[in-house]
Amino acid sequence: MSLKEVDWSKLPVPEDDGTASRIEGADMPALALDATNGGQVDLSRLSGTSVVYAYPKTGQPGTPLPDGWDMIPGARGCTPQSCAFRDHYKELSALGASHIFGLSTQSTAYQSEAVDRLHLPFPLLSDAGLELTTALNLPTFEVEGQTLLKRLTLIVRDSVVIKVFYPVFPPDRNAADVMAWLKDNQS
């Protein structure tokens, strides 16, 4: 199914279970995450405004997603979400986003395929060890023995989470929602 063929109305809508409300106002923990650009990123050390969108799992062509994936509320849509941030990258930067990152619990090697295939102009961060997930108590779910992040987006300014978008649905609209918020909340 191509991006344009996704009928979001046929997928279950994630509900706000309140698990992300405690994240707003939190300090980012000092820890380095592996990035697909070959380096590491410590979100607590970045100045300015960073946008970090978390997603469960990108699929790879020819590799099936877990059974029942489309029926897990909020699971479907990692590629459309990433492509929306890619397509709006310059606009987000112009609105003050100094840094943009995708974040998942997948390995950097796995994520690198998506960066190349989708031509992302920003790195994806790996929290495969669940350090950031645990430190911020990010909302997760389990599927086929994997701990995956529920879809959310953090706006971090000078190491403090100032806004959390959760739940994110439909995922292809997330970048536009972030742009609207940045426009209304410029520092």
Results as ranks from 00 to 15, higher is better:
65 L>I: 02
151 R>T: 12
106 Q>D: 07
73 P>C: 04
43 L>K: 02
148 L>I: 08
103 L>Y: 06
140 T>A: 00
151 R>G: 09
40 Q>L: 11
77 G>V: 03
20 A>E: 04
82 S>T: 11
141 F>Q: 10
14 P>A: 11
55 Y>S: 13
93 S>A: 14
139 P>A: 15
24 E>L: 06
53 Y>A: 10
107 S>T: 15
60 Q>V: 15
38 G>V: 06
117 R>I: 06
54 A>M: 07
20 A>C: 03
160 V>H: 03
73 P>Y: 09
187 S>R: 15
45 R>S: 14
135 A>W: 08
124 L>W: 12
51 V>R: 09
24 E>A: 15
123 P>E: 07
43 L>W: 01
10 K>V: 05
6 V>C: 05
155 I>Y: 11
154 L>D: 00
67 D>S: 13
2 S>V: 08
20 A>H: 07
94 A>M: 12
170 P>D: 08
116 D>M: 04
136 L>S: 11
49 T>I: 15
162 I>T: 12
104 S>I: 05
1 M>P: 14
164 V>Q: 05
83 C>N: 07
138 L>P: 05
1 M>L: 15
83 C>K: 08
40 Q>R: 15
175 A>H: 13
7 D>L: 12
99 H>C: 05
165 F>T: 09
157 R>G: 07
86 R>N: 12
131 E>H: 14
101 F>R: 02
115 V>R: 11
162 I>Y: 00
82 S>H: 10
99 H>T: 08
125 L>I: 12
36 T>L: 01
155 I>G: 13
179 M>I: 07
94 A>P: 06
186 Q>L: 10
69 W>E: 05
141 F>C: 13
46 L>K: 04
141 F>K: 09
103 L>V: 09
82 S>G: 14
16 D>H: 14
69 W>S: 02
12 P>D: 09
111 Q>H: 13
5 E>L: 15
27 D>Q: 14
109 A>Y: 06
131 E>W: 12
152 L>D: 06
151 R>H: 04
74 G>Y: 10
41 V>G: 08
14 P>F: 07
31 L>I: 03
